[in-house]
Write a protein that binds this DNA or RNA. Structure first.
Lengths: 112, 112
DNA sequence: GGGTCATATTTAGGGATTACGATATGATAA
DNA sequence: TTATCATATCGTAATCCCTAAATATGACCC
């Protein structure tokens, strides 16, 4: 016998963890309270610029830019330049994911 | 004038970031490639024990237990004791969220 | 009791993350 | 071209995370 035997109840298929790398980066970028707050605002207003988020979140501009960049870098957000503003919006590819997260938060709030 | 004025294009509603604390813990617990792999297996087999995951993931038991605990602690997973096994399953409350994550991963895979 | 199997905890180090002040870039307006 | 506004980057300290070896617990069987 060459392979180690574990509990022999069932044979579970083997998985390659690296196949979950890309999606984990997306989910990870969403796994922060400030960033979920940002996602909620963006999904409410369609697209927002950094300066609009400052009074809404009550945090300094570099902090907001860092959060936006993190979500932009993994592809969760997209960006467009209008006049002197950078407008961020949710990558349509992940709109359903974001909606599910935001919906779950509201469920959470009701049941507490 | 007492309040700082930012770009005056729109007035965005203020949000309380702490209201996103609970959901961010859930999302954060899911934001790791090993844990998403675990979620996929669990959602495929309904419920799995730690020892079944060892050969499937190819990682040592303490690492797997740590990942499972992290998801259990925030409420993403639930646990039941059967004989000498701990069976973990997805909290029904978050099944839709998990499905959306796994579905997005498959979409990802197709378009690459 | 003693042995075994499944699981959990402890611990550690290397790395990543968060927040944010200071500073830099870059576009626009005067 | 100089000032201003919006945004981005840098630097850094505090904190948290990932992995996994060593160890402990705890249920079950003899």
């Amino acid at each position: 016998m060459t392979e180690i035997e574990y509990c022999t109840t069932r044979k579970i298929r083997k998985v390659d963890i690296d196949e979950y790398e890309d999606i984990s980066r997306i989910i990870n970028a969403a796994g922060n309270k400030a960033r979920i707050a940002i996602l909620e605002i963006i999904s409410e207003y369609e697209e927002v610029c950094t300066c609009e988020l400052q009074p809404a979140l009550g945090m300094p501009q570099p902090t907001i830019t860092t959060h936006l960049s993190k979500m932009y870098d993994v592809g969760l957000l997209k960006k467009k330049q209008v006049w002197r503003f950078s407008y961020y919006y949710i990558n349509p590819k992940y709109r359903e994911l974001v909606n599910t997260i935001l919906k779950d938060r509201k469920k959470e709030k009701e049941t507490s």
